[in-house]
């Protein structure tokens, strides 16, 4: 077993355990913290796959912004930080069936794909420059990129409009 495999197994165990704790812990803040551990585990997977840019984006966007914002919102809205209510909603059966179906489908899909035993191609060293060019080249992903940018801009303007305090009205 190589060192890479040991790192992979350790990360996988930690990520899965953290993901499990997100839904089982009764404390909301703890759930958010476990979520951060799980997201960090995913970032480590990206690193193991030599997708360093994706790993950094994962940490900045998911941990640095989204998870911290979630904790912020929980702290602001919950008076009692320790939630003592039941942990399952009224529709937990449907949710269980749906997630079981989804999991089964994913397992079936992964099983049906024949994976090559050895790497198909070497990962190029400086893939960030290629990624950047692909995002803005007309033959690449310029349209999805621009659509996503406009969507984010719209959300930004919407947030400013909602938060705007009107004077003289």
């Amino acid at each position: 077993m190589t060192a890479m495999q040991i790192v992979f197994i350790l990360t996988a165990v930690v990520t899965l355990f953290a993901a499990l704790r997100v839904v089982t812990t009764p404390n909301m803040i703890h759930a958010a913290l476990w979520l951060i551990v799980a997201l960090f585990g995913v970032a480590v997977f990206y690193l193991l796959l030599s997708a360093s840019f994706l790993a950094m984006a994962q940490i900045i966007v998911y941990i640095g912004a989204i998870a911290i914002l979630m904790m912020f919102v929980i702290m602001l809205t919950r008076r009692e930080m320790r939630d003592r209510g039941p942990q399952t909603g009224p529709q937990w059966k449907w949710a269980a069936i749906l997630s079981a179906l989804l999991f089964g489908g994913l397992v079936w899909m992964v099983k049906s794909v024949s994976l090559p035993a050895s790497p198909v191609a070497e990962v190029p060293e400086s893939s960030i420059a290629d990624l950047g060019r692909a995002l803005v080249s007309p033959n690449g992903f310029v349209i999805p990129f621009e659509v996503a940018s406009v969507l984010l801009l719209a959300a930004l303007i919407g947030a400013v409009y909602v938060a705007w305090t009107r004077r003289n009205s």
Partner: peptide, 25 residues
């Protein structure tokens, strides 16, 4: 010599924020 080092410095900076948030709560 990481090829995303500049981004990395911002990414790990988030953990400093997180630590303070955890301590405060």
């Amino acid at each position: 010599d990481v090829n995303v080092a500049a981004l990395y410095t911002i990414a790990v900076g988030a953990f400093a924020t997180l630590g303070i948030l955890m301590a405060g709560w």
